[in-house]
């Protein structure tokens, strides 16, 4: 740019309906392209800049937004508007996201997305609920044992497929009565639950079927007396159709307009991974 003619961005109200629409599309992008953890919902738009039309047209929205974790796992097909935000007393988790979204011809394209999530501080949870259990590390031995026990109980009462663990998503150590509360995702395998001898030999079905479990596993009473009965509740989601990988097509012309179809979502991401665009919404 010539001297003194710097590119200027516009200051827009964060609660402007157009900005909110862009932010909602950005959060939707995150929810659709995560394979682990929970769906997030928009909480606050922190900053917005709108960059002027480029030579190609359209304008770019640069957003900083805060999100909150809902109680729906990302594999749960429930629309996020129907998912509850996790209340502070259950140890809420916040997302902090940066987006760049192109708006062109009324369509929104996420050019860049980066989110980090972090649980609320112990002090803040204590302020609203002094006795509420805090989030426990997912690699805690007691947590792993509780998940194993819960999954075993679920499979023992399941007359269909054997379900195997996909990921542990949250855990809390409950002091009174002593118990471990866990939430985890599961997936159906080609083994029959009642007949499994070696779960390691079971394979995920081609037509994926996921589920999500919540369980409270009580500490066993010494001496074998009657204790609290463990509670395991799993919701199995509808099967997901097999995704066919695109095959090279020699008849496809190499020139002309680019396909409007969005590229495939990224492969499974490791825990704590950041989702980075570009991708079409």
């Amino acid at each position: 740019a010539p001297p003194g003619v710097g590119l200027a961005y516009g200051q827009v109200n964060c609660d402007d309906p157009e900005v909110e629409q862009v932010a909602m599309a950005a959060v939707d992008y995150i929810n659709k392209h995560r394979s682990q953890g929970y769906k997030h919902t928009l909480n606050q738009i922190d900053k917005v800049k709108v960059w002027p039309p480029r030579p190609t047209g359209g304008e770019v929205f640069e957003l900083e937004i805060d999100t909150l974790e809902t109680t729906c796992h990302v594999l749960d097909p429930t629309p996020v508007v129907n998912c509850s935000v996790r209340p502070l007393r259950y140890h809420a988790v916040e997302g902090d996201c940066d987006f760049r979204v192109l708006k062109q011809d009324g369509q929104l394209f996420v050019l860049f997305a980066k989110c980090d999530s972090s649980p609320d501080s112990a002090e803040d949870v204590r302020k609203v609920c002094p006795d509420c259990p805090l989030l426990a590390p997912l690699n805690n031995t007691g947590v792993a044992n509780a998940v194993d026990a819960a999954l075993e109980a679920f499979n023992a009462n399941n007359s269909g497929s054997y379900f195997q663990l996909v990921e542990i998503t949250r855990a809390q150590i409950v002091p009174l009565p002593p118990a471990t509360y866990v939430e985890f995702a599961v997936a159906a395998t080609d083994c029959v639950a009642k007949e499994v001898t070696d779960p390691a030999k079971c394979n995920l079905l081609a037509e994926k079927q996921y589920g999500f479990c919540r369980a409270t596993i009580y500490e066993k009473v010494l001496g074998g007396g009657p204790g609290n009965a463990d509670e395991v509740t799993c919701t199995v989601f509808p099967t997901q159709p097999v995704v066919l990988q695109p095959q090279p097509d020699t008849n496809t012309p190499t020139s002309g307009a680019a396909s409007a179809a969005p590229p495939p979502p990224p492969a499974n991401l490791p825990a704590g991974a950041k989702v980075v665009g570009p991708l079409v919404v």
Binding site: C14, N43, Q44, I45, V93, D120
Partner: peptide, 27 residues
């Protein structure tokens, strides 16, 4: 605006464009 001497002109409510409203609660 025309005001009497010694009386501040009302500036109206201060609109802060950002950050926007909190939809649920602040963490």
């Amino acid at each position: 605006k025309v005001v009497q001497p010694g009386v501040d002109a009302a500036t109206g409510p201060l609109v802060r464009p950002c950050p926007g409203r909190i939809r649920h609660f602040k963490v």
